[in-house]
Design a protein around this nucleic acid. Structure first.
Lengths: 208, 208
DNA sequence: TGTACATCAGTGAACGCGCGTTCACTGATGTAC
DNA sequence: TGTACATCAGTGAACGCGCGTTCACTGATGTAC
């Protein structure tokens, strides 16, 4: 006998998810700090007051969106970091993975890029927290790499943060080129790859 | 006999500037897409309708703020780029200049970081445009550097953009540490310097 | 299995409020002679 | 220098509208026996 959610709980989760999805859609053309609760419920087709059964405020909903958007990034980062092959191969694979992620989750990427420095303090804090976790994960992986022998802990964290920021930059570039012709998107991939390569070259010669 | 603005023109400019200043202040705690015209005029102490004598909308005011904020960056970039000395000296000087700029223009820096990926299309476009100009300037300067011999035009532009993005990242880090104790701000400067150094090392070995 | 009661996600009316925009206006500044 | 008219930055009343939040409610789902 398997455990299933009660009908009530299942329906509640469904509505909650609908609110998150609707908000994410609306946030493609505005910032969280101007998102209205009524806008969101109207989109979903529930009464404005239903909103309060799930979130205290749109800021609260924003924090939930951070979990959703960056939660899906964790596995991707692990894949990139665990990737085998020489430096150039790993970079190409990473850029490819980022491009795919942007294609499949454009609204999530836009949301994070927008609200990372956005006007809602609690959401900014949530994003910073998640990104710090990512950087920590990357740092741990870097530590295991023989190339890192002799590096200080601070420098490893510096590099990890640089990679994380670069990942976001790359994602943001792909996002801007989403509607563009293939040629343009390939140019973006080319530039992103070059940036990563330059950083990797710097890494290899860091201790000289 | 020197040319002065008429009294009327001078007063108009003064009000316009007051609107810009008030908006910039209000934008420390929200995004442009939620900034209200009445908020701004209330802050300045003029009637809401006076706003229309200067701007069509808050988005329009935002574009004016971009010019103001990034206009003041042009001379700084030229100073950094024209700076003499070896690589490490130039990097230290650049980080120092950025730190100073953030201290003297925190609201401008916050505005650009926030609205670069923000919810107002015309403002995003204005920022992208200015940043592209910066990258072009940096590229021209890089081209003149002997280190760049043998580099393709695309790679020079890639590097220029990387520097510009890094400059903004650094500024944003300093901004978050503005209220922090000196020790913390020095740590930020240290990390920013290391990032720049790693990129410079990558640059030096790019053609190997 | 059936019954009686408890829970609680979603409702709908109502509220006071601030919003962006319009309009005709005022009075100081500018200009022509 | 003085006068008569034009310009135009800022005013203040008015508008219709959508906002966030409160409240008592309903009725399907859950639970105890």
């Amino acid at each position: 006998m398997s455990h299933t959610l009660g009908i009530r709980q299942a329906q509640k989760q469904k509505t909650r998810q609908a609110l998150l999805d609707a908000a994410l859609g609306l946030l493609e053309e505005q910032s969280l700090s101007s998102l209205g609760l009524r806008e969101v419920t109207r989109e979903v087709g529930v009464a404005p007051t239903a909103f309060y059964r799930h979130f205290r405020s749109t800021a609260d909903l924003g924090v939930a969106l951070v979990e959703e958007a960056l939660g899906s990034l964790h596995p991707m980062i692990r894949t990139i970091v665990a990737s085998a092959g020489d430096s150039d191969q790993r970079i190409e694979r990473a850029v490819e993975l980022i491009a795919r992620h942007v294609e499949t989750h454009p609204a999530h990427v836009r949301f994070i890029a927008r609200e990372r420095h956005g006007g809602v303090q609690s959401v900014r804090a949530a994003i910073q927290g998640q990104l710090a976790q990512f950087a920590e994960e990357v740092k741990v992986a870097l530590t295991k790499d023989p190339v890192s022998y002799g590096w200080t802990d601070d420098d490893l964290l510096m590099l990890a943060n640089l990679y994380v920021d670069q990942m976001l930059m790359t994602a943001s570039l792909f996002l801007d080129a989403l509607e563009a012709p293939l040629e343009e998107r390939q140019r973006v991939a080319q530039v992103a790859t070059s940036r990563m390569r330059l950083i990797s070259i710097g890494r290899e010669h860091w201790l000289e």
